[in-house]
Design a protein around this nucleic acid. Structure first.
Lengths: 236, 236
DNA sequence: CGCCCAGTTGAGGACACTCAATAGCGGTGG
DNA sequence: CCACCGCTATTGAGTGTCCTCAACTGGGCG
């Protein structure tokens, strides 16, 4: 269990009006006029892979919108082993617990280089009083998180190692359509799937031998999606 | 895959003012005056064990507060096997997805006899416009659900069969402190823990032999909590 | 009374885990 | 520039757990 120092590059502040993911961002429903209120404190940061966004137990003063990259949420069992309970990607929201004044319930750690919007809780609260639409938007975030959690449980903790790995790879293509799939460290994959690093390694090696996955460049994969889908569903 | 007919006993309508779990219920924060608005449409129903509250895919027009009993949320994998993704108990909220106009994402099925408040979505929406406090309350519900989901993943899908069963039994005592623990069918237990019915059966039998659990009456257990805790943490 | 379903138990095998040794890769320093 | 170190990934052998298939038991209910 090692700690990675936070390395943050400040991109400077920007206006949400110009944000590339505005349509899927937290303030999507607000009318133009509202943006006047919030152009100051929102900050846009970049995290390197394996940098820590926040730690479990920290009292949060911000929620985050993930603009680019992948973030893992990590829980630790009593015996010290870690379990990755969810993966967040483009346009997902992190740290909603802060809105309720609660400490963050996981470690949030970047799996790839990430761009992240930092939104102070105070700002959301201020807007929340006037904008009942924001409430709807927030609930949608919660709901999405919950749906992902359920799916995670159903797909990535059930079935053989081959099935789990196949499902995870397919999930990763869905998460970033068109882009090539990043291949994570075996330890992370194991923690996501409830498997040991050795088992994951063997499984990946076998998928490679049978040409269902191919490494196009450094830690980037091309998938045989139909083939993997057959495996994921247990038809192989 | 069999279907169980809904058996519903209508208790008649009642005023939330008198509700026994009002302090933990959805409208906890509303001032007295607000109750005038909502004494009509909230209904209080009773479900027998294994009755269906709602089915996955149904377009929901109500959210539910569980006043008494246990409810399972069931998802079905592509191959038809079922997985119980969460258990709900006293004062939990179900079907929040209906507030977003979405279909329910699971089957909700009573595991014990249940008392459940049915709250029309229209009512929540109506109140939501005036009461920003309600928004906070709703988010708290979402958050609790998510925390449970994460815990579920970490505790009940990891470790040996003995550990999982022990953790689930301990969870059940937490969920209803003081009361005796209900022992579910082996099939349900398996679906909760990602194990087969046979494995669960063997494990339960072994726990019984080693006196860590004892059947006090029909499907009711007394637990050796310290002993089970040792197993749950892997110290046995 | 006998059926039916749920639970139990057994035998055998498959799969994933453990422990351990090796191979590859990147970075550092001589 | 190359040798060395450390870390990650890979591979192997052996073991243990859980799954599968199957037979049997017992209680509840028609």
């Amino acid at each position: 269990m090692k700690t990675v120092p936070i390395r943050v590059a400040w991109l400077g502040e920007r206006d949400c009006r110009d944000c590339a993911i505005r349509s899927s961002a937290l303030f999507a429903g607000l009318q133009e006029v509202d943006f006047g209120e919030l152009h100051q404190p929102i900050e846009d940061i970049v995290l390197d892979s394996s940098a820590v966004l926040y730690r479990m137990g920290e009292r949060g003063r911000a929620v985050f919108t993930l603009r680019r990259g992948l973030v893992k949420l990590v829980k630790y069992l009593p015996d010290g082993t870690q379990r990755i309970v969810r993966l967040l990607h483009h346009s997902d929201t992190l740290g909603l617990e802060a809105l309720l004044g609660q400490p963050y319930p996981h470690d949030a750690i970047a799996l790839t280089r990430c761009e992240i919007c930092t939104i102070p809780v105070s700002l959301v609260e201020r807007l929340g009083h006037e904008q009942s639409h924001l409430c709807q938007e927030l609930m949608t975030r919660w709901q999405r998180a919950l749906a992902e959690a359920d799916r995670w449980l159903a797909e990535f903790s059930t079935g053989t190692a081959r099935q789990r790995v196949a499902r995870l790879l397919l999930w990763l293509t869905e998460a970033a359509p068109g882009e090539s799939v990043p291949l994570f460290g075996r330890e992370d994959l194991g923690a996501m799937l409830g498997l040991t690093t050795e088992t994951v390694s063997r499984t990946i090696a076998e998928l490679r031998r049978t040409r269902l996955i191919q490494e196009t460049s450094h830690h980037q994969l091309a998938l045989d999606q139909p083939g993997l889908r057959r495996i994921a569903e247990g038809m192989a």
